[in-house]
């Protein structure tokens, strides 16, 4: 089966900046990417994700800083010599070539023997489950199939690093989840370093080994999905990855996830309530309900509760108490 060069593929991004004229699109980014890692760049539109990826791929010059592969600087190496696979947003398949020729392109421009190309392409077709579509043109494929062709094409020459720029952006929700699973599966099997760009937080949480949260060209926080969700470093990270309530306290700001709060009708809970107040509104989402809560101190909080737990239903306008476990509220830096 497919074997990536297992000794290759760690990437060092050192203090990289990119200016377009006087506009700073990427600002002093420092990153150590382990070989075989699934690293996701997550951030709102315009936060510099694509720009950073394009600099890693070699399509954009870096203004300052350095990028190195396995410790060797590649800043001066042109894109076609870097040997990085890339899956473009919108796939960028070659519309005039068959699926087979698309996938074999990287080997064919390297003038590898016909037989070797055939064998390798067959292997890739098998990997992405497109054996029956080898002789079609990209225009005759569905979005998800095109996406898999793009993936196979980028993996075919066994690159040490694979760059993916919102590869699932064009797919509908259901297909997205399906392809996400396939992508994770393929990542496990080939062991290539994946650098993945998305602005879908669920996608980032479910797929990544580590997530980089970016804003305005700079890194806000790096960590595993668990770390980022449970211990956000600042308001931006807490608000961007999932939802969060922010509690202003004498010693600083605390982030509190809506689903970590327990809500009880006034006086029915056990122990001392953390906060008391009234229910402003309840929105029903099927499996869960979102309650807007106004404390007696005038703070607005969002509380998510599982629908099945709201057995004797709370009502709008009712007064209620809030409880949460010790440590559920995370103190933010700064």
């Amino acid at each position: 089966m497919f074997e990536a060069n297992s000794d290759k593929g760690s990437l060092q991004v050192r203090d990289v900046s990119k200016f377009f004229g006087t506009f700073c699109a990427v600002n002093g980014v420092d990153l150590e990417i382990q070989r075989g890692e699934f690293l996701t760049l997550l951030g709102p539109s315009g936060s510099g994700k694509t720009t950073l990826l394009m600099m890693i791929a070699g399509f954009l010059d870096i203004t300052s800083g350095d990028i190195a592969l396995d410790g060797t600087s590649i800043s001066g190496v042109p894109a076609e010599k870097r040997n990085f696979g890339m899956v473009f947003q919108g796939y960028a398949l070659f519309p005039h070539m068959t699926v087979r020729d698309n996938i074999g392109y990287a080997l064919s421009v390297r003038k590898r023997p016909e037989a070797e190309i055939r064998e390798k392409v067959d292997e890739m077709l098998d990997l992405v489950q497109l054996v029956d579509f080898a002789d079609r043109k990209p225009g005759q494929l569905s979005g998800g199939q095109q996406q898999r062709v793009a993936l196979a094409r980028a993996l075919c020459f066994e690159p040490p690093v694979l760059l993916l720029d919102e590869p699932l952006g064009a797919l509908d929700k259901k297909l997205r989840v399906e392809v996400q699973d396939q992508l994770k599966d393929i990542h496990k099997r080939v062991g290539t370093t994946f650098i993945y760009v998305t602005h879908d937080q669920e996608e980032a949480l479910s797929m990544s080994d580590r997530i980089v949260i970016m804003r305005d060209g700079a890194i806000e926080q790096v960590g595993t999905p668990y770390e980022l969700y449970e211990k956000p470093a600042n308001e931006f990270a807490a608000g961007f990855l999932g939802k969060s309530n922010f509690l202003q306290r004498a010693d600083g700001v605390y982030a509190l996830r809506p689903e970590k709060i327990d809500i009880r009708a006034s006086g029915t809970g056990e122990g001392e309530p953390r906060l008391s107040g009234t229910i402003q509104s309840i929105t029903y989402f099927g499996s869960m309900q979102r309650i807007m809560f106004l404390t007696n101190g005038g703070e607005e909080l969002e509380v998510d509760i599982d629908s099945w737990r709201n057995r004797d239903p709370l009502e709008e306008g009712q007064s209620a108490d809030l409880y949460w476990d010790k440590g559920a509220a995370v103190k933010l830096e700064g």
Partner: peptide
């Protein structure tokens, strides 16, 4: 779509390979 030409370069094609095999046919 210029990304198609970028994709060709990214896959290791030289400038002239990209021209003859991608740009000219398109």
């Amino acid at each position: 779509d210029m990304r198609v030409m970028n994709a060709s370069r990214n896959l290791g094609a030289t400038g002239s390979q990209t021209f003859w095999r991608i740009y000219l046919p398109l």
